[in-house]
Protein backbone atom coordinates (compact mmCIF):
# COMPACT_ATOMS: atom_id res chain seq x y z
CA UNK A 1 0.00 0.00 0.00
CA UNK A 2 2.64 2.58 1.00
CA UNK A 3 4.80 1.65 -2.01
CA UNK A 4 1.76 2.24 -4.25
CA UNK A 5 1.33 5.70 -2.71
CA UNK A 6 5.07 6.44 -2.99
CA UNK A 7 5.05 5.30 -6.64
CA UNK A 8 2.30 7.81 -7.43
CA UNK A 9 3.89 10.69 -5.50
CA UNK A 10 7.36 10.14 -7.06
CA UNK A 11 5.78 9.72 -10.50
CA UNK A 12 3.85 13.00 -10.34
CA UNK A 13 6.92 14.81 -8.94
CA UNK A 14 9.13 13.56 -11.78
CA UNK A 15 6.53 14.41 -14.45
CA UNK A 16 6.25 18.00 -13.22
CA UNK A 17 10.03 18.29 -13.06
CA UNK A 18 10.17 17.18 -16.72
CA UNK A 19 8.36 20.35 -17.83
CA UNK A 20 10.91 22.53 -16.02
CA UNK A 21 13.79 20.42 -17.33
CA UNK A 22 12.71 20.59 -21.00
CA UNK A 23 12.29 24.37 -20.70
CA UNK A 24 15.71 24.94 -19.07
CA UNK A 25 17.35 22.74 -21.72
CA UNK A 26 15.49 24.67 -24.45
CA UNK A 27 17.64 27.68 -23.45
CA UNK A 28 20.42 26.15 -25.62
CA UNK A 29 18.38 27.45 -28.58
CA UNK A 30 18.37 30.98 -27.17
CA UNK A 31 22.07 31.50 -26.47
CA UNK A 32 24.96 29.82 -24.64
CA UNK A 33 24.69 32.54 -21.95
CA UNK A 34 20.95 31.95 -21.42
CA UNK A 35 21.58 28.21 -21.00
CA UNK A 36 24.50 28.72 -18.63
CA UNK A 37 22.39 31.05 -16.48
CA UNK A 38 19.56 28.47 -16.37
CA UNK A 39 21.86 25.58 -15.52
CA UNK A 40 23.66 27.67 -12.87
CA UNK A 41 20.45 27.39 -10.82
CA UNK A 42 21.07 23.65 -10.55
CA UNK A 43 24.50 24.30 -8.96
CA UNK A 44 23.00 26.36 -6.13
CA UNK A 45 23.40 24.48 -2.78
CA UNK A 46 19.66 24.51 -2.00
CA UNK A 47 18.73 23.25 -5.49
CA UNK A 48 21.62 20.77 -5.16
CA UNK A 49 19.89 19.30 -2.10
CA UNK A 50 16.59 19.14 -4.00
CA UNK A 51 18.40 17.15 -6.71
CA UNK A 52 19.14 14.49 -4.10
CA UNK A 53 15.37 14.20 -3.63
CA UNK A 54 14.83 14.10 -7.39
CA UNK A 55 17.39 11.33 -7.93
CA UNK A 56 15.89 9.49 -4.95
CA UNK A 57 12.47 9.74 -6.62
CA UNK A 58 13.92 8.40 -9.90
CA UNK A 59 15.62 5.44 -8.20
CA UNK A 60 12.60 4.49 -6.10
CA UNK A 61 10.19 4.83 -9.04
CA UNK A 62 12.54 2.85 -11.32
CA UNK A 63 13.12 -0.12 -9.03
CA UNK A 64 9.61 -0.19 -7.61
CA UNK A 65 8.43 -0.18 -11.25
CA UNK A 66 10.58 -3.25 -11.93
CA UNK A 67 9.05 -4.88 -8.84
CA UNK A 68 5.56 -4.19 -10.26
CA UNK A 69 6.59 -5.73 -13.60
CA UNK A 70 7.93 -8.82 -11.82
CA UNK A 71 4.75 -9.21 -9.76
CA UNK A 72 2.67 -8.86 -12.95
CA UNK A 73 4.67 -11.04 -15.34
CA UNK A 74 6.91 -13.38 -13.36
CA UNK A 75 5.00 -16.45 -12.20
CA UNK A 76 6.83 -16.44 -8.86
CA UNK A 77 6.46 -12.64 -8.56
CA UNK A 78 3.34 -12.54 -6.38
CA UNK A 79 4.79 -15.19 -4.05
CA UNK A 80 8.00 -13.20 -3.53
CA UNK A 81 6.41 -9.72 -3.52
CA UNK A 82 7.46 -9.15 0.09
CA UNK A 83 11.10 -10.01 -0.63
CA UNK A 84 10.95 -7.92 -3.83
CA UNK A 85 9.90 -4.88 -1.77
CA UNK A 86 12.93 -5.36 0.48
CA UNK A 87 15.03 -5.78 -2.68
CA UNK A 88 13.79 -2.39 -3.96
CA UNK A 89 14.70 -0.71 -0.66
CA UNK A 90 18.08 -2.48 -0.63
CA UNK A 91 19.03 -1.36 -4.17
CA UNK A 92 17.74 2.13 -3.35
CA UNK A 93 20.05 2.46 -0.31
CA UNK A 94 23.05 0.91 -2.11
CA UNK A 95 22.76 3.41 -5.00
CA UNK A 96 21.67 6.45 -2.95
CA UNK A 97 24.50 6.44 -0.38
CA UNK A 98 27.39 6.77 -2.87
CA UNK A 99 25.37 9.18 -5.03
CA UNK A 100 24.60 11.50 -2.10
CA UNK A 101 28.27 11.57 -1.07
CA UNK A 102 29.51 12.27 -4.59
CA UNK A 103 26.79 14.73 -5.56
CA UNK A 104 26.96 16.77 -2.36
CA UNK A 105 30.75 16.95 -2.57
CA UNK A 106 30.33 18.27 -6.13
CA UNK A 107 27.70 20.80 -5.01
CA UNK A 108 29.50 22.03 -1.88
CA UNK A 109 33.10 21.32 -2.88
CA UNK A 110 33.36 24.03 -5.54
Amino acid sequence: MWSWVAHRITGVTLFFFLFAHVIDTAMVRVSPEAYNVAVETYKNPIVGLMEVGLVGAVLFHAFNGIRIILVDFWWKGPRYQRQLTWGVLGIFVVLMVPFVIRHLSNVFGH
Binding site: V39, K43, V58, G65, I69, H103, V107
Partner: peptide, 26 residues
Protein backbone atom coordinates in the same frame (compact mmCIF):
# COMPACT_ATOMS: atom_id res chain seq x y z
CA UNK B 1 9.09 1.97 -17.90
CA UNK B 2 11.69 -0.71 -18.51
CA UNK B 3 13.35 1.38 -21.27
CA UNK B 4 13.22 4.50 -19.10
CA UNK B 5 15.05 2.76 -16.25
CA UNK B 6 18.03 2.35 -18.62
CA UNK B 7 17.68 5.74 -20.35
CA UNK B 8 17.18 7.87 -17.22
CA UNK B 9 19.72 6.12 -15.00
CA UNK B 10 22.24 6.26 -17.89
CA UNK B 11 21.48 9.99 -18.25
CA UNK B 12 22.03 10.57 -14.53
CA UNK B 13 25.21 8.48 -14.54
CA UNK B 14 26.81 10.48 -17.38
CA UNK B 15 25.60 13.92 -16.27
CA UNK B 16 25.70 13.72 -12.47
CA UNK B 17 28.13 10.92 -11.56
CA UNK B 18 30.93 11.03 -14.12
CA UNK B 19 33.46 13.88 -14.18
CA UNK B 20 32.57 16.86 -12.00
CA UNK B 21 28.88 15.93 -11.96
CA UNK B 22 26.51 18.89 -11.89
CA UNK B 23 29.45 21.36 -12.01
CA UNK B 24 30.52 20.23 -15.51
CA UNK B 25 27.20 21.04 -17.13
CA UNK B 26 27.16 24.09 -19.39
Amino acid sequence: GLLLVVLVIGHLFVNLWQGDGIQQID
